[in-house]
Write a protein that binds this DNA or RNA. Structure first.
Lengths: 74, 74
DNA sequence: ACATCGTGTCAAGTATCTTAGACATCTCGG
DNA sequence: CCGAGATGTCTAAGATACTTGACACGATGT
């Protein structure tokens, strides 16, 4: 339900890069539920900016390294 | 009301830097209402990541130049 | 076979973001 | 003075994000 978002992310790759971090562990470190991580990771919706910042902080990278937004061709 | 967010922004400064751009014009260019711009500019809540990206695009700057998130000291 | 872990799904509810419209205030130009 | 533009407030409703809890499935290990 809810339309999928245009925002892309590298969460899965970053989790593995960060020593096989599990979705549950990431959820815990970010302060979200596991379900929310799954939904974001799958691009089912775009998180709030605050959550996006918290995720980037956990991985220790800038926000734009985790999330992307496509150019628009009009 | 809802709690104010920890996310900071430079929208007002960027509007003026971009040739006295008005809130209504920004709202229009981003595809939001004027009210939403006001609320975000005042830090009454943090926008969705998608909206944050669109705002940054309008100003032609990276997202992290528009929005900031404080360090956390637990 | 059985238990555990990681991932994923579904459904129903709460919280937060976003919209729409009406209205108040200030400033500026005519 | 009067009108128009820019900012802001309030209320109410609609749309998304996020939570909680339960369950399914494949892989791994004992």
């Amino acid at each position: 339900m809810g339309k999928p978002t245009r925002v892309t992310n590298e969460i899965r790759a970053l989790r593995f890069a960060a020593g096989e971090m599990t979705q549950a562990e990431l959820a815990d470190r970010v302060g979200l539920t596991r379900q929310t991580i799954i939904a974001i990771e799958q691009g089912r919706y775009s998180p709030s900016l605050e959550v996006a910042f918290r995720i980037a902080r956990v991985f220790g990278v800038p926000l734009e390294r985790v999330f992307g937004y496509p150019e628009e061709e009009s």
